[in-house]
């Protein structure tokens, strides 16, 4: 097995080297400092059935990344919100979901590695597919049919274009209330814990 691992390590080192290069480039161009925010146990579910299956809330939970706060659902047809949660579904303020200039794409890698927001490649919410694809293993989470546990897939970072066309990156770290280390079917689901970085000007997400 040893020889199988060697090229893997080389590859990993290569990626790191590339990442640090782009870091250097960014520091020269971007001025405003951004700060990582953490949001804990944002509720996007009203009840949970006894098997742990989330029973979807009546309304989405709307959230403003720019202001780091929840937005009333009555403002759903405005650009006050950037992302919205209900059960495992996440909307962006775009396409069929809202009037904003939002969008998203799923980046595979470490949160820290996404140092510059891509300026192209954003999908908008459409009836055929949301910008953040719904479904186990398709977007940000995987669902275990045996244990009924929803786990945010490690290494999936959501590159978000906000309602006003700014950039952000967001990593969901737990789907259960108070982010238990080993969620069980009795833990309340539909509670989002995530970290994000919002850039009000430019593309640096460092």
């Amino acid at each position: 097995m040893k020889n199988l691992f060697r090229p893997a390590l080389l590859l990993a080192t290569g990626t790191l080297a590339l990442a640090s290069c782009s870091k250097d480039d960014d520091t020269t161009t971007v001025t405003p400092a951004v700060q990582a925010q953490t949001v804990s146990s944002l509720s996007a579910a009203s009840t949970t059935s006894s098997t742990g299956q989330p029973i979807a809330a009546k309304h989405y939970t709307f959230f403003s990344l720019a202001d780091n706060k929840q937005v009333a659902y009555t403002d759903s047809n405005t650009t006050k919100w950037d992302v919205a949660f209900r059960g495992t579904t996440i909307l962006t303020n775009s396409g069929i979901s809202g009037p904003g200039q939002g969008g998203a794409q799923v980046y595979t890698g470490l949160f820290a590695d996404l140092t510059t927001a891509p300026t192209t490649g954003y999908a908008v919410d459409a009836a055929s597919a949301l910008a953040i694809p719904a479904g186990s293993g398709k977007g940000w989470y995987s669902y275990d049919a045996t244990t009924h546990i929803v786990s945010p897939v490690a290494g999936k970072v959501l590159a978000i274009r906000t309602a006003t066309g700014k950039y952000a990156k967001l990593e969901i770290t737990s789907y259960y209330k108070n982010a238990p280390a080993a969620p069980s079917a009795t833990d309340l689901s539909g509670y989002y814990t995530f970290r994000y970085v919002y850039q009000a000007s430019g593309t640096s997400l460092k």
């Binding site: 893997a8 990993a12 595979t108 470490l110 490690a154």
Partner: peptide
């Protein structure tokens, strides 16, 4: 894994 595309939390 060889492509560095697997992560854990």
């Amino acid at each position: 894994l060889e492509a560095g595309q697997v992560f854990r939390r």
